[in-house]
Amino acid sequence: MSRSILHRLPAGLKLTALAAAGSAVIWVSDWRVMVDLLLLVALAFPVARLGRGALVQQLRPLLPMLVVLFLAQGLMASWTEAALVIARIATLVLMAGLVTLTTRTEDLIATVERLLTPLAPLGVNPGKVSLAFSLALRFLPVIAEEAERVHEAQSARGLGNSPLALALPLIVRVLKSAEDIADAIEARSGHDDPDCPQEKPQRRARFNPLAALKTVKE
């Protein structure tokens, strides 16, 4: 994909602009203005060198709902109100889609981390947030494959589409691997982990029934 001017804008700026535009759109009360704005946003897609397919893809999942809303609004309120609501939703969705499609995932993660940095005194640890993001991205395909394997195994046993037969083994496997993953992270992080000293006594206390009772409620 070629990089347009929209691609090159900093992620933080795009997110701020999106938030501002999203709030502004709520105040538009004339359906004709709203439709003009919608067309304007739609025009930004070719500017961002995104094809018509990308635009349609953003709206298609919403289509059934937009139709229902349009009819409901039109019949209950007025057709101009219906047009306003539909155009507003489509505009919001397209604007947001535009930002997503022109910004790399890594840049968005980095922006999220930067936005969280000032919150550090409140107990938000950007390092942990970034670890959580990375872990989720790493294990998403692993769990999806696991789900596929469980599905095959259950089908072979004639359990077919039983959601219980699928979800339960998947969850138990995920929980089991969580232990190993946490151990591996701890073993590999040779740095000052604020949890290291705290966690040790807690682990020893595991065998103490009184302490175990206390951990029921965090």
Partner: peptide, 10 residues
């Protein structure tokens, strides 16, 4: 660890 899948975290 035994299972590298659980050790690769990124």
């Amino acid at each position: 660890f035994q299972n590298p899948d659980n050790q690769i975290v990124f």
